[in-house]
């Protein structure tokens, strides 16, 4: 347990028939940090988490969690981890309190300690009022909180969160984020999968970008952003019909690949000299008669970093 890394994976391979789910994934997560696995659906994030949480066997490689080998000593790993998957995996008939007591008993707490821990967790996750209600009557956010509470019964060394905020409203999502932050402050290591760039940006100390079963890039959010170049100029046009001509203007000034987002009427491109580029774009837009709502120069978003690293957007499905 003196190991400085809470999670170590080396060359993890996992095949399903002829398709390759993991194609040599390497991962090291220092203790007490949050590591994000970022990638589109089907990239292999969930497979990696299920392997590390002892749910899935793998074909080649080595994995160590909380200081124990995942394949040789899965039981010891299980006593030290928590897992919150994409579904709220709680018993829907039992009440919130009954769920927590059951899980605590299964972690081999005595009946009395299990009840005490359940009440403590209900308090912390703001579920006291709903403690007696069936989990089936809970809202999505409450169910996710109950699920998270169930993963934290033994204050795990390593917590796996597989897309913990998928399908949650922003308020519940912020609640989960706050919860994760205070856990990490208490010393827990978190491995988080997400397809939301914002989530990885907000929570993760380091991020592994994973695509078609491989880690294609690894680093802090800032490192990943700078890996694809420096500043970008961004124009938001008032009229969506001007998008194409605005893209033309931005391309002429920036000289790089232009990224157009019709939903937000936004055009962006990398630039070398930010001040000069800004002046040029303003002047040329005016000449072309395009009304801009906003013009600015900024660092690239993680979304753009992802696009540059993998050749497709993060939230797109990968064709099989």
């Amino acid at each position: 347990m003196t190991n400085e890394f809470a999670v170590v994976a080396e060359g993890l391979h996992k095949r399903y028939g002829r398709s390759c789910a993991l194609d040599g994934v390497d991962l090291t997560v220092p203790r007490g940090t949050v590591h994000g696995l970022l990638g589109p659906n089907g990239a292999g994030k969930t497979t990696a988490v299920r392997i590390l949480a002892t749910l899935l066997r793998f074909d080649a490689g080595r994995a160590e969690v909380a200081g124990f080998d995942v394949q040789r000593e899965p039981e010891r790993v299980r006593a030290r981890i928590g897992l919150t998957g994409q579904y709220a995996a709680v018993d829907e008939v039992l009440s919130g309190r009954q769920n927590l007591i059951m899980f605590a008993r299964l972690f081999h707490l005595s009946p009395r300690a299990a009840r005490a821990r359940a009440d403590e967790l209900l308090e912390q996750f703001d579920l006291v009022d709903a403690a007696g209600k069936s989990a089936a009557q809970y809202s999505g956010g409450m169910r996710r909180r109950l699920d998270l509470a169930a993963s934290l019964i033994l204050a795990p060394d390593v917590l796996f969160l597989d897309e913990p905020t998928t399908g949650l409203d922003p308020r519940s999502r912020n609640g989960v984020w706050d919860g994760v932050r205070s856990l990490v402050a208490g010393g827990t290591t978190v491995l988080l999968t997400t397809q939301y760039l914002e989530e990885a940006d907000q929570l993760a100390d380091r991020i592994s970008v994973i695509d078609t079963g491989r880690v294609v890039a690894e680093g802090t959010s800032d490192e990943l952003k700078s890996q694809i170049g420096g500043d970008r100029i961004e124009v938001v046009v008032r009229d969506a019909a001007d998008l194409a001509s605005a893209a033309h203007v931005v391309e002429a000034v920036g000289g790089g690949a232009v990224h157009t987002d019709p939903d937000t009427r936004r055009v962006s491109s990398p630039v070398r000299d930010r001040v000069e580029a800004l002046g040029d774009v303003v002047q040329r837009l005016r000449e072309a008669g395009i009304v801009a709502e906003d013009i600015g120069v900024r660092r690239p978003s993680l979304d753009e970093a992802f696009l540059a690293l993998t050749g497709h957007r993060a939230e797109e499905e990968v064709a099989a």
Binding site: G67, D126, L154, A155, V176, D178, S182, A185
Partner: peptide
């Protein structure tokens, strides 16, 4: 989840000998 989440949970089972 207004309050911070304590980690005052019961410690995991002893790390040493296997059961």
């Amino acid at each position: 989840m207004s309050t911070a989440i304590s980690t005052s949970a019961p410690a995991s089972s002893p790390a040493t000998a296997a059961p």
